[in-house]
Amino acid sequence: MNTSEKLFELLEKGNLSEDEKHLLDSLLKDQENKKLFDAYSAARTVTKSTSHLSTEEITDLVLIKNNIEPENKNILKKVPFIEEHLRSCSKCEEEFKLINIEYSEVDNYISAGIEQNKTQTQKTHINVMPPFVKKGFISRYAFVSLIVVLFSAATIYLLDDFLRPNYYRYASINESDGGVVTRGRATDEFQESLKAIEEENYTTAISKLNDDIKNNPEDETIFYTHYVLGLTYLETAEDSFIGLFTSFDKDKAASGLEHFRKTIELNNSGKFNNVNFDAYFYSAKALLMLGKLGEAKKYLSLVIENKGGKMEEAKNILNGLD
């Protein structure tokens, strides 16, 4: 037990023995302990002047008990006395229990909402926990306001789900789609583009890939630069507002589609057929971004017929589109 804990133990005890009084005097010789003692005494005096704790004090204690930083940092010095008051005041204790239950219900509700959203969307970037939930406004009076906010958030989710075409969720480029393999492309431009992609600097990546195509048009593996450029365009085509109301840049989707078609055209040696099958798959994604479901299904069927590396994903998308 450190000196601060010992000090609080003596302060809470009330009636001290002579030995304990001497111990208290020795502890108060320390400047930090003296400050704690003065703060504690002030808190006791203020609280004794009123019959009950304030809602703000009880709310801050609930946050502390739930490992959340309270709005009022000074409340930490008053915690021992607040707890002592709760033990002797049934009314304040009842309010503490009520606020704590409200906090738990809200926290559970939001956690469940986040988990449900994860299962309904393939790509989620939203945190629905409003900042003020963690900032000390969970009280009997703020709870109604919080419910209004949560209801509004739920309404936004439902509105997004209702307005968003079903095929949009299948058009997105997922993190699980994998990284880029060099396929023997050792040119400076291509290697610099890979570095830019790794750093998510897609503008630079697109510029370097276009330079590679311009400077090395006759290379046997130039088709792979077209393939990576197509992927990069699709990666940057998607836009959303806090993970909702997804939309796609039609020009970027069309550019991506054109480079996948160029990949298939130039990759005719028979050595890298799997790249063409992947290009079919991403051509389907580009077509979904453009709203061309019929053409997208044809490309997905080609992936399945040729048993491409993304055959299972293609099957899942086709099933979802039907």
Rank of each mutant, 00 (worst) to 15 (best):
L158N: 09
L159I: 13
D160C: 07
F162Q: 03
L163I: 13
R164T: 15
R164D: 11
P165A: 06
N166C: 09
R169K: 09
E175D: 13
G179L: 12
V180L: 02
G184S: 10
G184Q: 04
R185E: 10
A186S: 14
D188K: 10
S193D: 06
A196Q: 01
E199C: 06
E200I: 08
E200D: 12
E200H: 13
N201S: 12
N201W: 10
Y202L: 01
L209I: 02
L209C: 00
K214E: 11
N215G: 01
D219M: 04
D219R: 13
T221H: 01
I222T: 05
F223L: 00
T225V: 10
Y227G: 01
L229C: 07
L229H: 03
G230K: 01
G230A: 06
T236Y: 05
I242L: 07
F245R: 06
F245L: 09
T246M: 09
K252R: 13
A253R: 02
A253Q: 08
A253F: 09
E258T: 15
E258M: 15
F260R: 03
R261Y: 14
K262V: 12
T263I: 02
L266V: 01
S269L: 00
K271Q: 02
N273Y: 08
N273F: 03
N273L: 00
N274P: 04
